[in-house]
Protein backbone atom coordinates (compact mmCIF):
# COMPACT_ATOMS: atom_id res chain seq x y z
CA UNK A 1 0.00 0.00 0.00
CA UNK A 2 1.10 3.55 -0.51
CA UNK A 3 1.40 4.35 3.16
CA UNK A 4 -1.83 6.28 3.43
CA UNK A 5 -3.69 5.91 6.69
CA UNK A 6 -7.00 5.22 4.93
CA UNK A 7 -7.30 1.44 4.97
CA UNK A 8 -9.87 1.17 2.18
CA UNK A 9 -8.29 0.99 -1.28
CA UNK A 10 -9.68 3.01 -4.19
CA UNK A 11 -10.24 -0.05 -6.28
CA UNK A 12 -9.92 -3.65 -5.32
CA UNK A 13 -10.26 -6.83 -7.35
CA UNK A 14 -10.97 -9.94 -5.31
CA UNK A 15 -10.47 -13.39 -6.74
CA UNK A 16 -11.34 -12.01 -10.18
CA UNK A 17 -11.80 -14.63 -12.90
CA UNK A 18 -12.86 -14.27 -16.51
CA UNK A 19 -13.50 -17.20 -18.78
CA UNK A 20 -14.35 -17.03 -22.47
CA UNK A 21 -15.71 -20.48 -23.28
CA UNK A 22 -12.88 -22.81 -22.33
CA UNK A 23 -10.23 -20.11 -22.22
CA UNK A 24 -9.44 -18.52 -18.90
CA UNK A 25 -8.23 -15.00 -19.62
CA UNK A 26 -7.96 -13.96 -15.97
CA UNK A 27 -7.64 -16.42 -13.09
CA UNK A 28 -8.13 -15.53 -9.42
CA UNK A 29 -6.55 -12.10 -9.60
CA UNK A 30 -6.35 -10.06 -6.40
CA UNK A 31 -5.23 -6.52 -6.95
CA UNK A 32 -5.76 -3.28 -5.13
CA UNK A 33 -4.81 0.28 -5.91
CA UNK A 34 -4.85 3.08 -3.35
CA UNK A 35 -6.24 6.58 -3.78
CA UNK A 36 -3.79 8.68 -5.77
CA UNK A 37 -1.53 5.76 -6.64
CA UNK A 38 0.16 5.29 -10.02
CA UNK A 39 0.36 1.62 -10.96
CA UNK A 40 1.80 0.03 -14.07
CA UNK A 41 0.54 -3.25 -15.46
CA UNK A 42 2.90 -5.13 -17.70
CA UNK A 43 2.89 -8.58 -19.20
CA UNK A 44 3.20 -10.34 -22.54
CA UNK A 45 0.40 -10.25 -25.11
CA UNK A 46 -2.55 -12.32 -23.99
CA UNK A 47 -1.62 -12.01 -20.32
CA UNK A 48 -5.07 -10.60 -19.58
CA UNK A 49 -4.34 -6.90 -19.15
CA UNK A 50 -6.96 -5.70 -21.60
CA UNK A 51 -9.56 -8.11 -20.26
CA UNK A 52 -8.81 -6.77 -16.79
CA UNK A 53 -9.48 -3.21 -18.00
CA UNK A 54 -12.67 -4.33 -19.71
CA UNK A 55 -13.94 -5.79 -16.45
CA UNK A 56 -13.08 -2.65 -14.50
CA UNK A 57 -15.05 -0.50 -16.98
CA UNK A 58 -18.09 -2.76 -17.25
CA UNK A 59 -17.52 -3.87 -20.82
CA UNK A 60 -17.44 -7.52 -19.78
CA UNK A 61 -18.89 -9.23 -16.70
CA UNK A 62 -16.41 -11.21 -14.61
CA UNK A 63 -17.17 -14.94 -14.43
CA UNK A 64 -16.22 -14.98 -10.75
CA UNK A 65 -14.97 -12.70 -8.05
CA UNK A 66 -15.76 -9.08 -7.39
CA UNK A 67 -14.59 -5.57 -8.09
CA UNK A 68 -14.96 -2.98 -5.36
CA UNK A 69 -14.65 0.72 -6.08
CA UNK A 70 -14.40 2.68 -2.83
CA UNK A 71 -16.13 -0.24 -1.20
CA UNK A 72 -19.01 -0.45 -3.70
CA UNK A 73 -19.30 -3.67 -5.61
CA UNK A 74 -19.39 -2.64 -9.28
CA UNK A 75 -19.50 -5.85 -11.27
CA UNK A 76 -22.63 -5.91 -13.36
CA UNK A 77 -22.81 -2.12 -13.54
CA UNK A 78 -23.32 -0.52 -16.95
CA UNK A 79 -20.24 1.21 -18.42
CA UNK A 80 -21.83 4.66 -18.06
CA UNK A 81 -22.67 4.03 -14.40
CA UNK A 82 -19.07 3.05 -13.71
CA UNK A 83 -17.89 6.17 -15.55
CA UNK A 84 -20.18 8.25 -13.34
CA UNK A 85 -18.73 6.66 -10.21
CA UNK A 86 -15.36 8.02 -11.28
CA UNK A 87 -13.47 5.53 -13.45
CA UNK A 88 -12.22 6.86 -16.78
CA UNK A 89 -10.43 4.92 -19.50
CA UNK A 90 -8.20 5.83 -22.40
CA UNK A 91 -8.27 2.89 -24.75
CA UNK A 92 -5.38 1.63 -26.81
CA UNK A 93 -6.94 2.61 -30.15
CA UNK A 94 -8.25 6.11 -29.49
CA UNK A 95 -12.01 6.21 -29.00
CA UNK A 96 -12.77 9.79 -30.00
CA UNK A 97 -15.46 11.52 -32.07
CA UNK A 98 -13.74 11.69 -35.45
CA UNK A 99 -16.46 13.67 -37.23
CA UNK A 100 -16.45 16.48 -34.67
CA UNK A 101 -13.91 19.21 -33.99
CA UNK A 102 -11.49 19.10 -31.06
CA UNK A 103 -13.58 21.70 -29.25
CA UNK A 104 -16.83 19.80 -29.86
CA UNK A 105 -15.19 16.60 -28.62
CA UNK A 106 -14.15 18.23 -25.37
CA UNK A 107 -17.54 19.96 -25.02
CA UNK A 108 -19.31 16.58 -24.91
CA UNK A 109 -17.09 15.43 -22.06
CA UNK A 110 -17.12 18.78 -20.24
CA UNK A 111 -20.91 19.02 -20.25
CA UNK A 112 -21.18 15.84 -18.22
CA UNK A 113 -20.26 17.82 -15.11
CA UNK A 114 -20.82 21.41 -16.20
CA UNK A 115 -23.64 23.57 -17.51
CA UNK A 116 -23.70 26.66 -19.71
CA UNK A 117 -20.69 28.97 -19.52
CA UNK A 118 -18.91 26.66 -17.09
CA UNK A 119 -18.75 24.05 -19.87
CA UNK A 120 -17.02 26.50 -22.22
CA UNK A 121 -14.57 27.44 -19.48
CA UNK A 122 -13.74 23.80 -18.77
CA UNK A 123 -13.14 23.20 -22.48
CA UNK A 124 -10.86 26.25 -22.68
CA UNK A 125 -8.88 25.10 -19.61
CA UNK A 126 -8.41 21.64 -21.06
CA UNK A 127 -7.33 23.00 -24.46
CA UNK A 128 -4.68 24.99 -22.64
CA UNK A 129 -3.50 22.13 -20.42
CA UNK A 130 -3.12 19.80 -23.41
CA UNK A 131 -1.69 22.59 -25.59
CA UNK A 132 -4.27 21.94 -28.30
CA UNK A 133 -5.52 25.50 -28.70
CA UNK A 134 -4.10 25.92 -32.19
CA UNK A 135 -6.07 22.95 -33.54
CA UNK A 136 -9.26 23.49 -31.53
CA UNK A 137 -11.46 23.84 -34.61
CA UNK A 138 -9.96 21.02 -36.66
CA UNK A 139 -11.85 17.77 -37.14
CA UNK A 140 -10.37 15.12 -34.88
CA UNK A 141 -10.48 12.51 -37.65
CA UNK A 142 -7.94 14.54 -39.61
CA UNK A 143 -5.37 14.81 -36.82
CA UNK A 144 -2.19 12.84 -36.20
CA UNK A 145 -2.20 9.76 -34.00
CA UNK A 146 -0.41 11.43 -31.10
CA UNK A 147 -2.80 14.39 -31.08
CA UNK A 148 -5.79 12.06 -31.09
CA UNK A 149 -4.32 10.27 -28.06
CA UNK A 150 -4.09 13.55 -26.15
CA UNK A 151 -7.60 14.53 -27.13
CA UNK A 152 -8.84 11.24 -25.76
CA UNK A 153 -6.91 11.92 -22.59
CA UNK A 154 -8.64 15.30 -22.46
CA UNK A 155 -12.04 13.60 -22.80
CA UNK A 156 -11.16 11.39 -19.84
CA UNK A 157 -9.80 14.23 -17.69
CA UNK A 158 -12.85 16.45 -18.25
CA UNK A 159 -15.05 13.90 -16.51
CA UNK A 160 -12.85 14.42 -13.42
CA UNK A 161 -12.43 10.74 -12.54
CA UNK A 162 -10.86 9.39 -9.35
CA UNK A 163 -9.17 6.61 -11.30
CA UNK A 164 -7.90 6.67 -14.86
CA UNK A 165 -7.04 3.54 -16.81
CA UNK A 166 -4.53 4.10 -19.60
CA UNK A 167 -4.10 1.35 -22.15
CA UNK A 168 -0.71 1.78 -23.83
CA UNK A 169 -0.75 5.59 -23.84
CA UNK A 170 2.62 5.86 -25.58
CA UNK A 171 1.98 3.26 -28.30
CA UNK A 172 2.83 4.56 -31.74
CA UNK A 173 4.13 7.86 -30.40
CA UNK A 174 7.35 9.54 -31.44
CA UNK A 175 10.14 10.01 -28.89
CA UNK A 176 9.11 13.62 -28.22
CA UNK A 177 5.44 12.73 -27.91
CA UNK A 178 6.31 9.95 -25.47
CA UNK A 179 8.24 12.33 -23.25
CA UNK A 180 5.36 14.80 -23.31
CA UNK A 181 2.87 12.05 -22.45
CA UNK A 182 5.04 10.98 -19.49
CA UNK A 183 5.05 14.59 -18.30
CA UNK A 184 1.26 14.75 -18.66
CA UNK A 185 0.92 11.62 -16.56
CA UNK A 186 3.07 13.30 -13.92
CA UNK A 187 0.60 16.20 -13.84
CA UNK A 188 -2.48 13.96 -13.83
CA UNK A 189 -1.03 11.89 -10.97
CA UNK A 190 -1.45 14.87 -8.66
CA UNK A 191 -5.24 14.76 -8.94
CA UNK A 192 -6.18 11.09 -9.33
CA UNK A 193 -5.03 7.49 -9.33
CA UNK A 194 -3.85 5.82 -12.51
CA UNK A 195 -3.43 2.31 -13.79
CA UNK A 196 -1.21 2.22 -16.86
CA UNK A 197 -0.75 -0.73 -19.21
CA UNK A 198 2.45 -0.26 -21.14
CA UNK A 199 5.04 -2.23 -23.07
CA UNK A 200 7.61 0.51 -23.45
CA UNK A 201 10.12 -0.03 -20.64
CA UNK A 202 11.72 3.34 -21.20
CA UNK A 203 8.34 4.94 -20.71
CA UNK A 204 7.72 2.95 -17.53
CA UNK A 205 11.08 4.08 -16.16
CA UNK A 206 10.10 7.67 -17.00
CA UNK A 207 6.94 7.49 -14.92
CA UNK A 208 8.60 5.13 -12.38
CA UNK A 209 5.96 3.51 -10.23
CA UNK A 210 4.81 0.35 -8.59
CA UNK A 211 4.45 -2.44 -11.14
CA UNK A 212 2.19 -5.48 -11.36
CA UNK A 213 3.25 -8.16 -13.83
CA UNK A 214 0.54 -10.30 -15.45
CA UNK A 215 1.35 -13.63 -17.00
CA UNK A 216 -1.20 -16.02 -18.50
CA UNK A 217 -4.05 -14.50 -16.55
CA UNK A 218 -2.32 -14.48 -13.19
CA UNK A 219 -0.24 -12.02 -11.24
CA UNK A 220 3.39 -13.02 -11.44
CA UNK A 221 5.02 -10.36 -9.27
CA UNK A 222 4.21 -7.01 -7.83
CA UNK A 223 6.61 -4.40 -6.52
CA UNK A 224 8.61 -1.24 -7.13
CA UNK A 225 9.87 -0.60 -10.66
CA UNK A 226 13.55 -1.35 -10.14
CA UNK A 227 12.97 -4.55 -8.25
CA UNK A 228 10.40 -5.87 -10.69
CA UNK A 229 12.31 -4.98 -13.83
CA UNK A 230 15.39 -6.80 -12.57
CA UNK A 231 13.43 -9.85 -11.40
CA UNK A 232 14.62 -12.95 -13.26
CA UNK A 233 11.10 -14.44 -13.63
CA UNK A 234 9.86 -11.23 -15.23
CA UNK A 235 12.75 -11.28 -17.68
CA UNK A 236 12.00 -14.88 -18.52
CA UNK A 237 8.31 -14.51 -19.32
CA UNK A 238 8.31 -11.08 -20.77
CA UNK A 239 11.40 -9.09 -21.30
CA UNK A 240 13.65 -11.79 -22.68
CA UNK A 241 17.25 -10.91 -23.29
CA UNK A 242 16.48 -7.50 -24.81
CA UNK A 243 16.02 -5.85 -21.46
CA UNK A 244 19.39 -6.73 -20.08
Amino acid sequence: MSGSNVPQPLIEARNLTMRFGGVTAIANVDLSVAEGELRCLIGPNGAGKSTFFKMLTGQVMPSEGEILFRGTRINGFEPHDIARLGIGIKTQVPNVFDGLTVRENLWIAASRRNRGKATERAVARELERLELGSIADRLVGQLAHGQRQWIELGLVLLTEPALILLDEPAAGMTEDETVRTAKLIGIIKQSCALIVVEHDMKFIRMIASRITVFDRGRILVEGEADAVLSDQRVRDVYLGKRAA
Binding site: T57, E78, P79, H80, A83, R84, G88, I89, T91, N95, V96, F97, I108, A109, R112, E152, L155, V156, T159
Partner: peptide, 8 residues
Amino acid sequence: KRVEFIGY
Protein backbone atom coordinates in the same frame (compact mmCIF):
# COMPACT_ATOMS: atom_id res chain seq x y z
CA LYS B 1 -18.23 3.50 -26.62
CA ARG B 2 -16.62 6.82 -25.77
CA VAL B 3 -20.01 8.33 -24.95
CA GLU B 4 -20.51 5.58 -22.37
CA PHE B 5 -16.98 5.98 -20.98
CA ILE B 6 -17.76 9.65 -20.47
CA GLY B 7 -20.80 8.61 -18.47
CA TYR B 8 -23.83 9.15 -20.70
